Amino acid sequence: TYYTVKSGDTLNKIAAQYGVSVANLRSWNGISGDLIFVGQKLIVKKG
């Protein structure tokens, strides 16, 4: 599943929405910090 980042989104918010961990979101998307951008597509695997 792909999720497109919207204004106001955070990794924590997206992780909670999908029932996954922030660590997994980072791993699946090659993100090291907490910086995400509006319009960015993130890979999300269902929890």
Rank of each mutant, 00 (worst) to 15 (best):
21 S>I: 06
38 V>S: 09
8 G>P: 03
44 V>C: 03
27 S>P: 01
34 D>Y: 13
17 Q>H: 10
31 I>E: 03
18 Y>P: 00
26 R>F: 04
1 T>N: 10
47 G>A: 14
11 L>H: 01
25 L>S: 00
10 T>C: 03
47 G>C: 05
38 V>H: 07
21 S>T: 14
35 L>M: 15
22 V>L: 11
20 V>M: 07
39 G>S: 06
17 Q>N: 14
42 L>M: 11
47 G>K: 14
7 S>K: 11
43 I>P: 00
1 T>A: 15
25 L>R: 00
43 I>W: 11
10 T>K: 05
46 K>Q: 15
8 G>T: 06
36 I>A: 04
1 T>I: 13
3 Y>D: 02
11 L>M: 07
34 D>M: 08
20 V>P: 02
37 F>C: 05
16 A>H: 11
27 S>E: 15
12 N>P: 15
33 G>Y: 09
14 I>T: 01
15 A>M: 03
16 A>P: 03
9 D>Q: 02
41 K>E: 12
38 V>Y: 06
30 G>E: 15
1 T>V: 11
20 V>T: 10
7 S>G: 13
3 Y>G: 01
11 L>D: 01
4 T>V: 12
15 A>F: 01
17 Q>Y: 14
37 F>A: 14
6 K>A: 11
14 I>M: 02
2 Y>W: 14
9 D>Y: 01
38 V>P: 12
38 V>N: 07
21 S>L: 08
12 N>K: 13
19 G>T: 08
35 L>D: 15
32 S>P: 10
29 N>T: 02
42 L>Y: 03
6 K>M: 13
13 K>M: 13
42 L>T: 01
16 A>N: 13
7 S>L: 09
3 Y>K: 02
8 G>W: 05
6 K>V: 13
26 R>I: 15
1 T>L: 11
30 G>F: 09
44 V>F: 05
45 K>M: 10
2 Y>I: 13
42 L>A: 00
22 V>S: 08
44 V>L: 08
11 L>P: 03
40 Q>Y: 04
45 K>Y: 14
29 N>D: 00
18 Y>Q: 09
36 I>H: 02
9 D>I: 02
8 G>L: 06
9 D>K: 01
19 G>Q: 15
25 L>Q: 00
13 K>R: 15
22 V>R: 05
25 L>C: 02
9 D>C: 01
23 A>Y: 08
12 N>M: 09
44 V>G: 01
35 L>E: 15
5 V>P: 02
43 I>H: 08
24 N>H: 10
45 K>P: 08
18 Y>S: 07
43 I>A: 07
28 W>M: 07
18 Y>N: 12
37 F>N: 12
27 S>L: 15
28 W>N: 03
11 L>W: 05
23 A>H: 11
13 K>L: 13
13 K>H: 12
43 I>D: 04
6 K>F: 05
41 K>T: 12
10 T>S: 12
34 D>T: 10
45 K>A: 13
39 G>L: 03
28 W>E: 04
7 S>T: 11
45 K>V: 13
43 I>Y: 09
47 G>N: 15
15 A>I: 02
5 V>Q: 00
29 N>I: 01
17 Q>C: 05
39 G>M: 04
19 G>L: 13
36 I>Y: 04
13 K>A: 15
21 S>G: 06
28 W>T: 03
31 I>L: 10
14 I>W: 01
29 N>L: 01
3 Y>S: 02
18 Y>W: 14
18 Y>T: 13
44 V>Q: 01
25 L>W: 00
21 S>A: 08
13 K>D: 14
3 Y>N: 01
32 S>D: 12
43 I>R: 08
19 G>D: 13
38 V>E: 15
45 K>Q: 11
8 G>N: 08
19 G>C: 06
36 I>M: 07
2 Y>E: 12
32 S>A: 15
36 I>R: 02
26 R>L: 15
27 S>K: 14
46 K>M: 14
39 G>H: 05
27 S>A: 11
34 D>F: 07
15 A>C: 05
26 R>V: 12
47 G>P: 09
